[in-house]
């Protein structure tokens, strides 16, 4: 039997199928060892059968091998590669990352809002502080003024109480009997303090003029006009007086004052009492 006849007999197909007896198998094997063309035929038959039978496999069967290795206790690192997930698993790391990002963004927005609210609050507080500061300044000024007023009042009080100071009452005269004034004369300081609170407000265009008088002979000396009478709160005027005054008088004069007193408009007059 030639090799061709041997091949055509169909024995090799049965050999691959495993349908021959043990004796027949060994006989074919001996032929294969000596005849490469027969071996080649066997390989081709085998390849075709493998493809045919593999076509009826319902799924790719590679995924089963890890279970086989595990059952055999052959878990090498290589098999771990094979056991890598066949189905993509949920990427929890990525999801967690995204969730964290969203939370972070939310947190940032919240912080920004908080910051904005705080800044508004700070501005409000700053404005209040400023207002308070201004108020404080006003208060300080008032205190300052009050202190100054007190100081002035005290000074006046001192003047009035000072034994060395001569008090000269100036009663009202015919033209305006209700008028009243008083002079406190500090001879050492050459100063008089005129309390003119009892004088009415001068008419428009008129001023009070203060006179120092010597009686014999009667001669008046102007001590000046009370220009700011209306605006002076306490109506106490400090005036320099270097004269040896024997009396003081106040007349109403045209604005700017006069050379000599207009006796018809003499409001108050008082003589200095000689010290005993």
């Amino acid at each position: 039997m030639t090799n061709k006849e041997y091949i055509e007999s169909g024995i090799l197909e049965l050999y691959v199928a495993g349908a021959l007896s043990e004796a027949e198998n060994e006989a074919v094997y001996q032929k294969l060892l000596k005849n490469p063309d027969i071996l080649d035929e066997v390989l081709k038959i085998e390849a075709a059968i493998i493809k045919l039978t593999a076509a009826t496999s319902p799924t790719d069967s590679k995924y089963i091998f890890p279970a086989v290795k595990e059952a055999l206790g052959l878990n090498t690192s290589d098999s771990q590669v094979v056991t890598l997930p066949r189905q993509p698993k949920t990427n929890w790391l990525a999801y967690t990352g995204w969730a964290a990002s969203v939370l972070l963004a939310g947190g940032l927005i919240w912080l920004l809002n908080q910051n904005r609210a705080l800044q508004t609050e700070i501005k409000t507080v700053e404005a209040e502080i400023n207002k308070q500061h201004i108020d404080n300044q006003l208060l300080e000024e008032q205190i300052h003024t009050a202190r100054a007023n007190l100081k002035e009042a005290n000074k006046l009080l001192d003047v009035i109480r000072d034994k060395e100071i001569i008090a000269v009452p100036l009663p009202g005269q015919d033209v305006y009997p209700e008028a009243y004034a008083k002079v406190y004369w500090d001879k050492k300081a050459n100063t008089i303090y005129l309390d003119a609170q009892g004088l009415p407000e001068p008419p428009r265009g008129k001023v009070y003029q203060v006179w120092s008088l010597t009686l014999s002979p009667l001669s008046p000396t102007s001590l000046g006009t009370l220009d700011d009478f209306a605006n002076d709160d306490n109506k106490v005027f400090t005036i320099t007086n270097t004269n040896a005054s024997e009396a003081f008088g106040i007349t109403l004069e045209p604005a700017g004052g006069s050379e000599t007193p207009t006796m018809e408009q003499l409001y108050t007059l008082g003589a200095v009492q000689t010290t005993p």
């Binding site: 493809k51 039978t53 009826t56 496999s57 091998f65 090498t76 290589d78």
Partner: peptide
């Protein structure tokens, strides 16, 4: 083990097909 895996890869689909044809059930196969 490497040789085992190589042989498995060569024949597993074929074996799977033959087995499935007989049992006709994925889990049992």
């Amino acid at each position: 083990e490497k040789a085992f895996e190589a042989l498995y890869n060569m024949y597993s689909d074929s074996m799977h097909g033959v087995i499935y044809n007989i049992v006709r059930d994925n889990d049992i196969a």
